Simulated scan of single mutants.
Amino acid sequence: METIGLIVPCYNEEPSIKIFYDEVERVFSEMHANHVDYNHEYWFINDGSSDNTLEEIKKLRENDENVHYVSFSRNFGKESAMSAGLENVGGDYVAVMDVDLQDPPALLPQMIKYIKEDDYDVVGCVQKSRKQNFVRAFLSSSFYKVINKMSDVEIKQNVRDYRLMTRQYVDNVLKLTEYNRFTKGIFSWVGFKTKYIEYDGVERAAGESHWSLYQLLEYSLEGIVDFSDVPLKVATWVGGVSFFLSLIGLIFVILRAILFGGSVSGWPSLVSIILLINGVQLFCLGIVGNYIGKIYLETKHRPKYIVKEKK
């Protein structure tokens, strides 16, 4: 019998663990009743939680040997948690799911059907609707438009990390070993035949979201830098245009001095122009510095996470 491995990143999700487990078990029981039989195993990744998340996972482990966990020494972030899950999970098929049930387990039978009957390598999920404020909605929409213009790979708007993948697909994702990871981009970069299914967004089963607006903005910037060199090209063009305009201005000043004589008037505008040019230079240096920082972290060859406990 084929096995589905479930990767479940967790950070301070104590109230959600048991609710998630019960819902997944219900879905697989219904599949069994409909003569769709798969073994399944859980890989909970405890990302340095400060609550009793790990204890809740251990309780499940006591009663179900198919429950496994990896517990980090500290919080390394969701990207590292998903990476740990992919590196440890077994099974013929692998699913990445959020423990808060915003990724409905009830979609699994449909996802399996697309892979088995329509020969897809991966089935991803896209939220059709989601309750969020105007600022977040605008920034999210803008991010996908920008990154798809800049990147060589297309990342579908509102796509979730929730997806079901074949073992071949997972093995190829694992070949990408970079330290700086933007998994949505990595999933798109490896290619393969992909199907997206849409569903209405649902509320968290318990607990609260740990993603602040600042963290989302930082994550978006990470994605753009990791999967595009367009910002570097923009910096080059901005620098070139600034130099060209400055050269024209210099020629104009020299000609005016020769033809009409010098003048001390206009120094406020001159100072403003100098500050503007310096601002452009610092902006370009910031872009270059961001890429250099990424290179610096890659060359350190630090592990993406450190495991404190595993079973």
Score class of each variant (00 low, 15 high):
residue 4 I to W: 10
residue 8 V to W: 07
residue 10 C to L: 00
residue 11 Y to H: 01
residue 15 P to R: 05
residue 18 K to P: 14
residue 21 Y to P: 08
residue 28 F to Q: 10
residue 28 F to S: 11
residue 29 S to W: 11
residue 31 M to G: 12
residue 35 H to K: 15
residue 50 S to H: 14
residue 53 T to D: 14
residue 53 T to K: 06
residue 53 T to M: 04
residue 54 L to Y: 11
residue 69 Y to A: 06
residue 72 F to G: 08
residue 74 R to L: 07
residue 84 A to I: 00
residue 94 V to D: 01
residue 94 V to P: 06
residue 95 A to V: 05
residue 102 Q to G: 14
residue 104 P to A: 00
residue 107 L to V: 09
residue 109 P to C: 12
residue 111 M to V: 11
residue 112 I to H: 14
residue 114 Y to L: 13
residue 121 D to T: 10
residue 123 V to G: 02
residue 123 V to W: 03
residue 124 G to R: 07
residue 129 S to W: 11
residue 129 S to V: 12
residue 134 F to Y: 09
residue 147 I to H: 00
residue 148 N to L: 07
residue 150 M to P: 07
residue 152 D to L: 09
residue 152 D to C: 06
residue 153 V to S: 10
residue 154 E to T: 13
residue 155 I to P: 03
residue 159 V to Y: 15
residue 161 D to L: 09
residue 162 Y to T: 08
residue 164 L to E: 04
residue 166 T to E: 01
residue 166 T to F: 07
residue 169 Y to H: 09
residue 170 V to Y: 04
residue 171 D to L: 02
residue 171 D to T: 02
residue 173 V to Y: 06
residue 175 K to N: 15
residue 177 T to K: 10
residue 177 T to I: 09
residue 178 E to M: 00
residue 181 R to E: 14
residue 182 F to S: 04
residue 184 K to D: 09
residue 185 G to E: 02
residue 195 K to R: 10
residue 199 Y to W: 07
residue 202 V to D: 12
residue 202 V to W: 10
residue 203 E to I: 15
residue 203 E to A: 14
residue 205 A to T: 02
residue 211 W to D: 15
residue 211 W to K: 13
residue 212 S to H: 11
residue 213 L to M: 15
residue 215 Q to R: 01
residue 217 L to K: 12
residue 219 Y to W: 08
residue 220 S to N: 12
residue 222 E to M: 02
residue 227 F to I: 05
residue 229 D to Y: 08
residue 230 V to D: 02
residue 230 V to L: 02
residue 234 V to Y: 03
residue 234 V to L: 02
residue 240 G to C: 11
residue 250 L to K: 10
residue 255 L to C: 12
residue 256 R to W: 06
residue 259 L to N: 14
residue 261 G to P: 09
residue 263 S to H: 10
residue 263 S to L: 06
residue 264 V to N: 11
residue 266 G to W: 15
residue 267 W to T: 09
residue 268 P to A: 11
residue 269 S to I: 01
residue 271 V to C: 15
residue 274 I to D: 13
residue 275 L to Q: 06
residue 278 N to K: 13
residue 280 V to E: 14
residue 282 L to V: 12
residue 284 C to K: 05
residue 285 L to H: 12
residue 286 G to T: 00
residue 290 N to G: 11
residue 292 I to D: 08
residue 299 T to Q: 01
residue 299 T to I: 00
residue 301 H to K: 08
residue 302 R to V: 04
residue 303 P to I: 00
residue 305 Y to R: 04
residue 305 Y to T: 01
residue 308 K to A: 07
residue 309 E to D: 04
residue 310 K to H: 13
residue 311 K to Q: 13
